[in-house]
Design a protein around this nucleic acid. Structure first.
Lengths: 250, 250
DNA sequence: AGAGTGGGTGAACGGCGTTAGCTAACGGTG
DNA sequence: CACCGTTAGCTAACGCCGTTCACCCACTCT
């Protein structure tokens, strides 16, 4: 939630409003998991709260905006989970932390199917790119960036602590090179473009693996995808030069 | 559609029914792309056809079943597209064919955002595993297997033509080994378990890459994901020992 | 010719998002 | 204190949606 703590400021009206807003978001969260994404109805949320549906329009201009806020909250919740897993690693070597964070990502995804679907599936705003506009207008944009930052920062630390082999700039296709440069310029630390490409590649593998598992697209081959996940993580770790004994998967 | 061709058999009633059924499926397809997955309503389909909504219940027991049929049709359409791309490769070397099929997969996905979301996103039946039951009851199961078979067959051919290095059975985690064995037993040809694991790994990368692009989860880094896709395919190809000049990405 | 069935209809139920208009309480000001 | 604008809630309503029901007509079969 990340911003629900400071509720004791302002007039009584403002406090009441903030409380109701928080309650709406919590209720929406609960309705989502109990009724699924299709059952996430304004009327259901209002019913749960003992309110009438139109009352919610005092807090959100439309159902879509409420869902977007929920997505932002879920991103924050996921990030908290990831950071907790990362910070629990002792000693705090970046390689082990990256691994722990990746496992925490899968763990959250598999224990929060529905929420994960909302964040990373097609139901989200992802579909229909809308002309690549929508820069940072959406409230889910900031937590989304925070989420990416968790992995990106760890990746950078892994490389800075002990560089692994990456393709030279010249080996990358010029168009890819240009895009990676543009992206790199937005980040706090400058890294070789090859690192960025390896990071993306690793992230794609992690995302692909978890998405396939959660969306059921691995059932055709695997009853329990966890060993395959560990196998993939082992390959990724090898590519990143992450050494050390393979700690048990939780 | 794969089964809409033989429409001139049976009684006149049967033919009329088959025609209407086909028209429903085509209309649903059209409504899907024009109105999005949310707009795919029974009433909208019926309206488009000049029918009343309850009439559709003579053909499908519920909206969900109709959507499932649509998913099956889309799988078939995608498979046709993939096979066409595969068969257009000359000379028909498996490596080049696999590459062409992967590119065709991305091409179809990027030009059919909404349909892809229905097939591979969370909106599909993927979410909520339902106790891993639902073996082959769903009409989308057969085309789904066909889809997997396209890539699996190519992969097998690549390996059989020129084996690439794969982990030995003993190197795989025992649980993974057991699952791959079970999966392998269901396939027509027996292959080393290591090949199966490499196949899964490659498929995960392809799926992850395309999903991220279509669902907009690469926009944080890349404006045009195609160069990254080509880069990933190059890495995958290298892992599979696919040589040959890098044909232009069409 | 008559019976039966299959494909259509309109009406209706409950639920949905959303809007409009109303009311009552709150918060600050004379 | 009274007063008045703002704010948060309500009910009613509109037009969608999926789905069910009762009905009806046309075709098919005996």
């Amino acid at each position: 939630m990340a911003d629900g703590a400071i509720t004791d400021v302002g007039t009584r009206r403002e406090r009441a409003r903030a409380d109701t807003l928080r309650e709406i978001r919590e209720t929406a969260r609960r309705v989502l998991v109990t009724s699924g994404p299709e059952g996430l109805a304004l009327r259901a949320i209002a019913r749960e709260m003992g309110l009438s549906a139109p009352a919610l329009y005092r807090y959100f201009p439309s159902r879509e905006d409420l869902v977007e806020q929920l997505v932002a909250d879920l991103y924050d919740e996921l990030c908290d989970h990831l950071e907790a897993a990362r910070d629990a690693v002792a000693p705090p070597r970046p390689g082990a932390q990256l691994l722990a964070t990746a496992r925490a990502f899968r763990r959250w995804a598999t224990t929060h199917h529905i929420e994960f679907g909302l964040l990373f599936g097609s139901a989200a705003q992802g579909i229909v790119p809308a002309d690549a506009a929508r820069a940072d207008d959406s409230p889910a944009e900031r937590p989304g960036r925070r989420f990416g930052g968790v992995f990106a920062a760890l990746m950078a630390q892994v490389y800075l602590e002990q560089p692994f082999p990456v393709p030279a700039d010249g080996e990358l296709a010029p168009e890819l090179q240009a895009q990676l440069e543009a992206w790199c310029a937005k980040l706090p630390v400058a890294l070789p473009l090859g690192v960025m490409s390896v990071f993306l590649s690793c992230w794609i593998r992690l995302y692909g693996m978890v998405c396939m598992e959660v969306f059921g697209h691995l059932r055709f081959a695997l009853a329990d995808p966890e060993p395959m996940f560990e196998s993939e993580m082992r390959r990724v770790a090898a590519e990143l030069g992450i050494t050390g004994d393979w700690s048990p998967p939780s």
